[in-house]
Amino acid sequence: MNVSDLTLIELRQRLATTGLCFGCGLFRIRLHTPVASIATLLHDLYAHYPVYSEQGIDDYRIKLDWTSWSRRWIRPIVRFTADSPAPFTDIPIARALPTLEWGTNWCIATRAHHLLMLHAAVVERHGRGLILPALPGYGKSTLCAALTHSHWRLFSDEFGLVNPEDSMLIPIPRLISLKNQSIDVIRAFAPSAHLGPSFHGTHKGTVAHVRPPFNSIARMNEPAKPYWIIFPRWQANAPLTLEPIPKDRAFMLLATNAFNYEVLGELAFGAVSTIVKNCDSYSLVYSDLQQAVRTIDELVCSAHD
């Protein structure tokens, strides 16, 4: 059963009582919230996630609650917590969803130390993984959303999860969060993309979320071997360039940009070495999204043939 199989009333009820238990990749998340407007958004954006039974071992218990009885009615404010009180500031109800998404990412980043967490988007095609590491603002999520709607399977737009034992990529198909002009760029690029409402005035400006395609969630338990690393960078009016980058540089960029490279120590050193050894690495500068996707497709097809 998926979230979309619940009626909105059933979903609200679960969220407000035992919590909605659902699966995202390897993780089992239990989400509590009495906020009805959040339930409506989740019914749409979380539609494809499988609903789990109430009994199970939760990886993350996440709660979005009214800060107080009175703040429910006058300028409503909600609070994000995870297990115990989390050190987060309260937020107006209008920005609850972006906070829920960032807060959940925060929980994963601080706790999933059984896995190596690269700071990267990951997609897969023909069983081969493409890692798109990037610094924020370089257009990683935009490119990831575009690829996800052009025959690629979404693994993640934020966490390149790696099993440190065998260096395989592990999917965690969470919502793709798009910022500012990227929102319209993706609407134009992929009319089939399912976007949630735009939230204005967040730290990142305007934010909207792309729902992961059904296929990405249905196959979220299938890992993939990494094959390519492309460091993308969007630059206005720049002609497209795709240049191989040396392995030592790829190693350094991947390791220094990971969430928990230090924590995993030797395991992480081994895993990043293996990834870099097995992957062709490139840097991609682009201004035109269509052209960037086409270039990546060509690269992949030449490897596949």
Partner: peptide, 15 residues
């Protein structure tokens, strides 16, 4: 020792 931090996406990198 800060009591409260604001959730921002970039905080993820500063853990």
């Amino acid at each position: 020792i800060r009591q409260h931090i604001e959730i921002k996406p970039q905080d993820l990198k500063q853990l």
